[in-house]
């Protein structure tokens, strides 16, 4: 497998202040600063809600947690295709965006298999073939076994 070595970009606006900022603050100052910062960031459109806001996932501590957060946010939108499509588009980086699509398609091909049609990253397209070339996966199952 070729390594995924594209540049991964995101806006810090999607997350909390980085650890570098926090190290400058002692305990008493942290509380004051955090409250003030939250007020300012909120007013500046940096409001975030971890469970529903895709951009907030960028603040997760590890890449695994960040990707899981994005997957869960998209999954939480259920079958609202429009909202889901918009949420996926909020993922700032192409590989991560396509990873959400692939995971959704594999998780429930009937509901999300179509998302594989939007995948552009070659490595992920290859894995989406498992869904794309097997149309029966996208048909609701009826108890019809012999």
């Amino acid at each position: 497998m070729a390594p995924v070595n594209e540049v991964y970009l995101t806006s810090v606006c999607s997350g909390a202040p980085g650890p570098d900022a926090a190290t400058f603050l002692d305990g008493s100052m942290t509380k004051i600063f955090s409250g003030l910062l939250a007020l300012m960031l909120g007013g500046a459109g940096c409001d975030r809600s971890v469970e529903t806001d895709m951009t907030a996932c960028g603040s997760q501590g590890t890449p695994e947690a960040r990707e899981e957060c994005r997957f869960q946010v998209a999954l939480g939108l259920g079958h609202d295709r429009e909202a889901q499509g918009m949420a996926v588009m909020e993922v700032p980086e192409g590989v991560s965006r396509d990873l959400v699509r692939l995971r959704l398609a594999l998780h429930d091909p009937i509901a999300y298999g179509r998302l594989c049609n939007d995948v552009t990253v070659r490595e992920i397209q290859e894995r989406c073939r498992m869904v794309n070339i097997r149309p029966h996966l996208m048909i609701p199952h009826e108890p019809n076994t012999p």
Binding site: M1, V4, Y8, L9, L37, A44
Partner: peptide
Amino acid sequence: CAVGCSSEPVVEAPPPPLPAL
């Protein structure tokens, strides 16, 4: 906030690699 709320992108660590095809 000047850093945090700007739209300047920063590098995001890559997702964990996919298993071999």
